[in-house]
């Protein structure tokens, strides 16, 4: 082989490898999926959440003998932060899709849960347990591919089944009861939402190295790097500063 041929073949191989790595930038999803667990805490005193004045609607007042409070920041006694969405923001190439149908309930003139996390394309069901009329009105940015809609939910209304096309934290409101405010957190791949103690477990994580993001509606997003071994459990803790 002369020098020219060597040069050309090296060049060709380099280009092929580059293109190949671009195309095949996927980790093969093998068996032995692991999980990511952890706790999200609030550092400092939780901001005061005002009790909600529901006097607009006598049904709502009657349904809540102790007045409900706003839920923008809900911290447990140990500082655990509730309603934080945990998801894998980087490193996941072939996520298994979540298929379970989740329920978003309108109950006692509040949203339950306050934050509903879901996968792209995962069906969720909006239902009402109340004997007063609501309207369910998510307000995504239509430029993302998520299109806003607005459906009435009078007493006894059939559930509304929907899904979202793109990752986005979507605010959802009831125009009839302006205090009703919640979130559809649409993420790609496995996810979790913290419980009242700030604990979470993301299940079904294939082995690999990832960036985990924690999103809280007031405090924003934090990230952490984790490595999940096959069938293993990785830990990621987060602390948000109270402000």
């Amino acid at each position: 082989m002369n020098r020219q041929q060597v040069f050309v073949s090296v060049l060709a191989i380099t280009v092929l490898v580059c293109c190949g790595s671009l195309l095949l930038n996927k980790t093969v999803s093998a068996a032995g999926e692991g999980k990511i667990t952890g706790t999200v805490k609030l550092d400092g005193e939780a901001p005061h959440m005002k009790p909600i004045d529901m006097s607009k609607d006598p049904y709502c007042v009657k349904a809540n003998p102790t007045p409900q409070k706003f839920q923008n920041v809900v911290a447990g006694s140990g500082g655990g932060l509730e309603n934080v969405v945990l998801y894998i923001s980087d490193g996941l190439s072939n996520p298994t899709e979540s298929t379970a149908v989740q329920v978003f309930d309108q109950k006692n003139c509040m949203y339950s849960p306050h934050v509903l996390a879901m996968d792209i394309g995962q069906t969720f069901k909006v239902q009402t347990s109340d004997q007063t009329a609501h309207n369910i009105h998510p307000n995504p940015n239509p430029m993302t591919g998520n299109i806003p809609w607005n459906q009435s939910q009078p007493p006894g209304a059939p559930p509304v089944e929907k899904s979202w096309k793109a990752t986005e934290f979507i605010e959802v409101k009831c125009n009839i009861h302006p205090w009703m405010h919640g979130w559809f957190a649409v993420v790609k791949g496995p996810y979790a939402v913290t419980d009242e103690n700030g604990n979470f477990t993301i299940q079904n994580v294939p082995p690999g190295s990832y960036t985990v993001s924690a999103w809280q509606e007031v405090y924003g997003t934090q990230t952490a790097k984790v490595t999940v071994a096959a069938g293993g459990s990785a830990k990621a803790d987060f602390t948000f500063k109270a402000k």
Binding site: W149, N150, S152, N175
Partner: peptide, 14 residues
């Protein structure tokens, strides 16, 4: 159909 962009919802399901 509802008036999209406003509080007026669709009552088609109800």
């Amino acid at each position: 159909t509802g008036l999209d962009g406003t509080p007026m919802p669709s009552f088609a399901d109800n």
